[in-house]
């Protein structure tokens, strides 16, 4: 019962924040509503027993990535979005495709609803130690590859944002 109440509260906050991102015309309002979505998602991760993922979600996503976004919005002095026509392909192909995709997803989830079962609080709980063992034993090679990826991203960001002289 408690789980359902918490899920409904934070799920509604998530969807409301996402809709606010879609409807707001100023980028800074969209960025702040995205931070709300990420915070509510962190609480949903906690309900699913992923405590370390929830902490990383708050620190990395809501902390680092969104600060970067807000910083760039303020640096470029981004104003209210202009009304332009936009791409016709996006309107006439993208929106019906999106609706078809969403209906298909709901059908696929709904038709397998009983097989998926229930999620209980505490039925599956991953301590940080267990996650670290999995990350540094089973997934050691992907972990090392991501460090190279981050190095390339840092160099790329520095080269791209450098002022030409």
């Amino acid at each position: 019962m408690l789980h359902q109440v918490l899920f409904i509260i934070f799920g509604v906050v998530c969807v409301a924040g996402a809709l606010n991102l879609l409807l707001q015309r100023h980028p800074i309002n969209s960025a702040l509503s995205l931070i709300v979505v990420m915070g509510a998602l962190a609480l949903l991760f906690l309900l699913l027993g992923a405590e370390f993922v929830a902490a990383v979600q708050v620190i990395v996503y809501a902390g680092a990535v969104m600060v970067l976004f807000v910083f760039v919005i303020m640096l470029l002095n981004a104003g209210v979005e202009e009304h332009t026509r936009g791409s016709r392909v996006a309107i006439f192909l993208g929106i019906p495709g999106l609706i078809a995709f969403f209906i298909f997803m709901c059908w696929a989830i709904g038709s397998n609803g009983s097989a998926l079962g229930q999620a209980r609080i505490g039925s599956f709980y991953v301590p940080t130690q267990e996650l670290g063992i999995a990350l540094f034993r089973e997934f050691l090679l992907p972990f090392e590859v991501t460090s190279v990826l981050i190095l390339i991203a840092i160099m790329g960001a520095v080269v791209l944002a450098r002022r030409e002289r």
Binding site: H3, L21, E81, F101, M105, G110, L116
Partner: peptide, 27 residues
């Protein structure tokens, strides 16, 4: 106890809103 399909449906809703924002937004 919450059915797992609720979580998956919430994920699908958020993904669909993200795609819609990607298509509609101009900034």
């Amino acid at each position: 106890m919450v059915p797992l399909s609720w979580y998956l449906t919430l994920g699908a809703i958020l993904f669909a809103i993200g795609v819609a924002a990607f298509l509609v937004k101009r900034n």
